[in-house]
C-alpha cells in the first residue's frame, strides 16, 4: 500500500500556499482592517499543521528546517528591540515612529515601526504553536 493518500497530498500542495499567502495578507492588513500578528501567526501555524497532517514529521522537518524555539527567541528580541529603540531617540519607552516612503513598486507607502513589533508577535505565535504541536506529536 504505497502512498495511499494521493488526493490529500496533492490538495495540500496547492492549499498550503493559499493559506500561507492569506496569513501574510492578514498580517500586513492588520493596521487598517481586522487581522494582525496574532491571527496571521496562527494561520501560518495552521498551514504548517496541514503539511504535518498530509505528510509526516521528518518530511516537514526536511522541507522547513527551522528550530522553532529559536524563532520564539528572535520574535521576543524583535519586539523588545523595537520597544527599546525609542530610548535612543530620547523619547519614552515603546514610542513608535512612522514616515512616508516612496518605495519602487508600491508607490507612496507609510511605514510604521509598530509593524516590527507585530512581526515579533507573529514569530512568537508561530514558534510557540509549532513547538507545542511538534512536542506533543513527536513522542510515541
Amino acid at each position: 500500500m504505497k502512498n495511499s493518500d494521493v488526493i490529500i497530498q496533492t490538495t495540500t500542495k496547492v492549499v498550503f500556499f493559499m493559506i500561507f499567502l492569506f496569513s501574510i495578507h492578514i498580517f500586513f492588513a492588520g493596521h487598517y482592517t481586522p487581522g494582525g500578528g496574532f491571527v496571521g501567526g496562527l494561520l501560518t501555524a495552521s498551514a504548517i499543521v496541514l503539511l504535518l497532517l498530509a505528510f509526516d514529521i521528518q518530511t516537514v522537518r526536511k522541507a522547513l528546517p527551522f528550530n522553532y524555539t529559536v524563532i520564539i527567541a528572535i520574535g521576543l528580541l524583535l519586539a523588545l528591540g523595537t520597544a527599546s529603540a525609542s530610548i535612543l531617540f530620547d523619547v519614552p519607552f515603546f514610542t513608535h515612529a512612522y514616515d512616508d516612503f516612496r518605495l519602487p513598486l508600491f508607490g507612496l507607502t507609510s511605514l510604521h515601526s509598530a509593524m516590527m513589533f507585530d512581526l515579533g508577535v507573529y514569530l512568537v505565535v508561530v514558534g510557540a504553536t509549532m513547538t507545542i504541536i511538534l512536542s506533543i506529536g513527536s513522542d510515541d
Binding site: I8, A54, F55, D56, T59, S138
Partner: peptide
C-alpha cells in the same frame, strides 16, 4: 475535518515517519 478523518483512519494524527 482532515485531522478527525486521519485520526479515524490511522489512529494517529501526526505521523513520525511514513
Amino acid at each position: 475535518t482532515i485531522a478527525f478523518s486521519k485520526y479515524i483512519e490511522r489512529g494517529v494524527i501526526v505521523e513520525r515517519r511514513h
